[in-house]
Design a protein around this nucleic acid. Structure first.
Lengths: 143, 143
DNA sequence: ATAGATGCAAATGTTTTGCAGGAAA
DNA sequence: TTTCCTGCAAAACATTTGCATCTAT
């Protein structure tokens, strides 16, 4: 069965924290992993509803928070002001197409290093960062 | 008189766009320039109220939008979800202290160049970006 | 049996909009 | 006197919270 590793991760987290294993949490995890993109609460809600027609927004939000705590998901908020959830994996930043909404991940060692230099220069202890490039993707650009 | 250049900039913009020169717009511009930081609508509202006790939030928001259109101000939204207005000047990014709220500007040619390479690699036409480093400033760090 | 989870409705916090009255040109 | 502005109240929007009910353990 697909997503077995993640299912077990969640099960372990629930056990370790005296939390309950419910139908809703299962369903939301399943949909979240299937969509595997940068998914909004609304998208999750719509999709989960197709199987479990009486689930509430509240449960989607609460479960996604849980998945973040469990290390399975991560929250991102781009310029449109909506929270998106992505499957947690190694550090990266994003390119966002402002026409079609496509979101591409990138990773750049040079930039990470330059950030360290900047932090040192201002004597900041940097804990995290946000780096997003907005524009038009190859399908949407006109020039 | 201070802020003369900006006052004239605004006056010109208003004239060019058939908009009116009002007491409120004056007052908000004045306070905005005095605070000269990364100011929220709330801060502007409080400060402007001290001189013009019956001004409304609406006017602050509308006037700041106007100042952005006129090229005098720029909107920024950091992790706390509140819009801040800064005095428009050449391109830069930010370091944000998550303890005291201090905001420091930085600029890095190397990063800009690396961004261009990333854009090229993914065939994106990048129009703007957002790059923020979050952590503790020299006054707030404990290590 | 009981601690915890759910789902609805209501609250939240920030920003925007509708509209009647007010002020600049 | 006409066009634009203002300020209030209400709406919008995404997310969170209170609470009575339900369910996993």
């Amino acid at each position: 069965m697909a997503h077995d590793v993640e299912r077990q991760s969640l099960a372990r987290y629930l056990d370790d924290h005296n939390l309950r294993h419910t139908r809703q949490r299962d369903a939301i995890l399943e949909v979240f992993l299937e969509l595997k993109g940068h998914t909004t609460a609304e998208e999750l809600y719509e999709q989960v509803r197709e199987k479990h027609s009486n689930i509430g927004y509240t449960t989607v939000y609460r479960t996604m928070k849980l998945l973040c705590d469990a290390g399975l998901a991560a929250e991102r908020r781009f310029e449109d002001g909506v929270t998106r959830y992505e499957v947690q994996h190694e550090h990266h930043d994003h390119l966002v197409c402002t026409r079609c909404g496509k979101i591409v991940e990138f990773e750049c060692k040079m930039i990470e290093q330059a950030q360290e230099e900047i932090a040192a220069k201002f004597q900041f202890r940097v804990l995290r960062h946000r780096h997003e490039l907005y524009g038009h993707c190859s399908d949407c650009r006109e020039d």
